[in-house]
Design a protein around this nucleic acid. Structure first.
Lengths: 344, 344
DNA sequence: TTGAAAGCGATACCAT
DNA sequence: ATGGTATCGCTTTCAA
């Protein structure tokens, strides 16, 4: 089955290739009419012939000639991460609806991988990129900007990256940290500590900032303590932090990512600690485990759908020449049993 | 910054575009030498100039001319599904290593969506497709085959789809169903039932077959019972099945997918039932909840890495002209507390 | 080992 | 409203 080209359609419909091209690119307006300078009769005939012959546009040719591809790339830091799995779907839905194809490729929290993905992206004439940058990702992102490809930073900010080709869709991470800590304090857990990653990523450090601010506001400066770990060491470190913490009289932990939350719950199970009796817990992001753990877990959720959709809108806006936007969305706190006030 | 083309490089290096093309496409052999009919000196110069000018191949042009794209598409039924999130990464790693770019797009368990994704895929000159078909996906897949694009069916079989352009990488689902049921019976849970989807998908119906076979082997024919639900109704149906089951004296349930497992555990929590005391449970696929639930949950895991890698290998093999393969991999059973033998 | 030139299949510009 | 044609950047003969 040889490939059907625009020329075959033109010949069969007895019109020029130009006409066929017009028709194939015409968008339907709300009345279902083709909005292009073509006689409706002719257009209909072309459409029928195209259908009959099984014509399919050759993207490579279109992209080569026009310089754009109607394709955007999404580069999460980790595709198997529940947060991004959810967001991906929203991004894809909206982008598709706007006539864009979406291309996913994870950076796996690695700057070199991000750079190689970015090279592929640029080689593919991709019109715009949504990226959750990993540490050191600035170089790769500047490559895109140098090639005049607009970028939306999703979830993680790089502060000294700005310009009319850089949009941002972020969570109000300070508010998230504050919310979590405020709740703990209000419920009587005044000795609340935090476990965090030494990742150098804006979202996490802002959550830390929120925690600190809340503690200060409540005159608990002396109790501020953030324990740091890395991806590799987290499992054992978290267990250690919790064990030591309980010994020292810590009554609550705030976990600013899903992975830390899961590890904390696992560690508590292993250590035979119960929540909120031995330790109150505030986790992050949505997960089945929060509702199925021995006690339901209080956690902070991000507005996935909005994050995804806003980033697509911002990106397509930029592709179409609108100025870059920075959008900051609010988190929500879902209370569970893990922060119930203790009877004294 | 205007785009640098092969011609710019040729001019600067004082060679023909042909030479540049050769050099840019040459693969390095194990000694690091470029395997192409070009003087090593010249090649080196070309490479340097390309580097200096910041040359990047224009994929659209290459693909238009050569007819292939070194790109494969992966179409899972649900990208936010943990099983596919894990497998995606393995697929991407290996494909990338083999010089292919990977393109993900979910069918969301919807035949129309699959068809539209497939259209996009075919329009993009994609060299091959790995797909986990949803019900009714046969039409879309035949489209690919009609265009001579090789396909690998991953995880789910369509039996009457065969040919030298159709590879298959599947789990031995009958064995999975058998394993689960054998374990239950061996541990004394003879009144084991199953909850399943009316999806018409091979993997699930084969798991049912395994369950039935095991029950028959143990002369428990009278106890065979499979409850059916749909995605939409699952949450409430599962709860109902479990509640009724316990009343009727059912002592175990086998849940043949992750989502059913999660819902069963949630339902039990809600109904105040404990495992294995009130009901033994065998779940499917990996999840944090299996280790963090009140009692650890026995479950069956699929060899994600192998599934991913075999499918890439099979597909690339077909792209390069090798015959199609069918590969069936074995599941593993991870015992947990949810099937502990009850003291009488 | 090197180069010239012919397309791949669209789009875009300029005519009509 | 419709058509002619140059062109996008590369790969691929074929010839030197």
């Amino acid at each position: 089955m040889k490939r059907v080209t625009i020329r075959d359609v033109a010949r069969e419909a007895k019109v020029s290739v130009t006409l066929v091209s017009f028709v194939m690119n015409a968008k339907r307006d709300k009345d279902g009419n083709l909005d292009c300078p073509v006689n409706p009769e002719t257009a209909k005939r072309v459409l029928q012939v195209a259908q009959k012959l099984g014509y399919r546009r050759n993207f490579a040719a279109a992209s080569l000639r026009s310089g754009h591809s109607n394709t955007i790339a999404v580069i999460p830091n980790d595709i198997s991460n529940k947060f991004f799995a959810g967001i991906s779907r929203c991004i894809e839905d909206l982008a598709h609806q706007r006539g864009y194809t979406v291309f996913f490729s994870s950076s796996e929290e690695n700057a070199d991988k991000l750079e190689s993905v970015m090279d592929a992206v640029l080689a593919h004439n991709i019109d715009g990129v949504i990226v959750a940058p990993c540490t050191g990702g600035e170089i790769a992102i500047r490559k895109a900007l140098d090639s005049r490809v607009p970028v939306v930073l999703l979830d993680r900010d790089i502060e000294n990256l700005t310009g009319d080709n850089v949009g941002k869709v972020l969570l109000d991470d300070v508010a998230a940290g504050r919310m979590a800590t405020d709740l703990l304090i209000e419920r009587g857990f005044r000795n609340a500590e935090m476990i965090s990653y030494t990742l150098g990523i804006s979202s996490i450090s802002e959550r830390e900032r929120g925690y600190r601010m809340s503690m200060m506001d409540h005159d608990l400066y002396d109790h501020v303590r953030i324990h740091y770990t890395t991806y590799g060491d987290a499992a054992s470190d978290v267990e250690k932090f919790i064990k030591d913490g309980v010994k020292r009289g810590v009554d609550a932990f705030f976990l600013p990512t899903y992975s830390l939350s899961a590890m904390a719950l696992a560690a508590m199970k292993k250590l035979g600690l119960r929540t909120p009796d031995d330790l109150a817990i505030v986790g992050f992001d949505e997960s089945d485990i929060y509702s199925l753990y021995d006690t339901t877990v209080t956690h902070i959720v991000q507005p996935l759908k909005e994050l995804g959709e806003k980033s697509v809108e911002a990106l397509i806006g930029m592709i179409e020449g609108k100025p870059a936007e920075t959008i900051v969305l609010k988190p929500t706190l879902i209370p569970g049993g893990s922060t119930d006030r203790l009877e004294k």
